[in-house]
Write a protein that binds this DNA or RNA. Structure first.
Lengths: 186, 186
DNA sequence: TGATAACGAAAACGTACGTTTCACTTTCGT
DNA sequence: ACGAAAGTGAAACGTACGTTTTCGTTATCA
């Protein structure tokens, strides 16, 4: 009744890559199966549906992103550098094994006008996590203005992600410059 | 071989509303037909395919947005106000008859990993138009730095649009504040 | 090694969707 | 008023997709 860790990993790898570069609706389950080298029977023994597989891929992504971000923050010493480390993490994550076309969570939100509760929860979790951590880091930079500065940086980060739809392959330089100006002004 | 203007309008209205709030792939052609009060035979006499209907809806949207933006700019007198008028236009457009969930062009880009040429052209046109106009307006504010400031504002505008996926129903206040800081720093 | 659980291959099912066709009716210009 | 153009309604087609089922095969571990 359970999946072997290797097959589960292969399934999540395939789902992640295909869903978040080609779009969920545009990716047939068969494509995921072919890429994972797994039979349909096995997939549906481990996951209730395509949507459940998507939710699992999102959760794994959330954990991986959190780790990447934590590491990037930990490498910095000053409050400013720790705040701006989001952009380091953004690039590291983009070039890593889970680097997708833009943002898996925004992409999922874009595909579902009113997402099923399982997905809605994952999306809310990701946004809240992003916002909460940015506000905390911003509070260290500009005490009393953390809320405001953090919300601004959330917009910048989101903007950088969405800009990948306009000009693929871009760097985070513009976002970094904007963030630096905002930090300096606060 | 041609469509009456009233039926074409009804089709484009329905397509616009349903495609850009529910997603293109998630919206069956039948839903568009039902909303428009038009038969399938009529739709396919006027448009080659669902995708062609989407392209037509995007083109009409581009024209409407351009008009809205032009009007908002024309209402301002100082270079700074004319540059920041994008956000007035963003709100006006959002509350207007073509106000969608976030951005029709980004949404279409998100749904197609490698869009058919007809769509790719529309998306490139929209981005280029946005960038080019922002750079021009920014050049009036900060001569010699228009390219840089315009690109930054493009990120802010895109971020504001994408943030609608995270927290629906938000205002442009944060984006406006970020933009103001950027203008002041330039 | 042998029992148990996981997996593969392939077929089948039901359904939803984009698109076409056909026979008939309405609208519009002259 | 009349003929052409445009629209309707419903049915049908082909296909693609998510999911289930069956059965024979392989891996895992006590």
């Amino acid at each position: 009744m359970a999946l072997r860790t290797s097959t589960e990993t292969r399934l999540l790898d395939a789902a992640d890559e295909l869903f978040f570069t080609g779009g969920v609706a545009a990716t047939p389950v068969d494509a995921v199966l072919a890429r994972a080298g797994v039979s349909a029977a096995t997939l549906y023994r481990g996951f209730a549906s395509k949507e459940a597989l998507l939710a699992a891929a999102l959760e794994r992504r959330h954990r991986a992103w959190t780790r990447t971000w934590d590491d990037a923050v930990a490498q910095q010493t000053t409050p400013q550098a720790r705040l701006l480390a989001v952009f380091d993490a953004l690039e590291t994550f983009r070039d890593g094994p889970l680097g997708s076309r833009w943002c898996a969570f925004l992409g999922t939100a874009a595909e579902h006008a009113s997402p099923p509760p399982e997905l809605a929860a994952a999306l809310r979790l990701e946004t809240d996590h992003l916002r909460h951590r940015l506000v905390d880091l911003a509070e260290e930079v500009a005490p009393g203005r953390g809320e405001q500065l953090g919300e601004q940086l959330l917009l910048v980060v989101t903007g950088d992600l969405a800009m990948r739809l306009r000009t693929p392959g871009r760097s985070t330089d513009v976002a970094r410059a904007v963030a630096t100006t905002l930090v300096r002004a606060a």
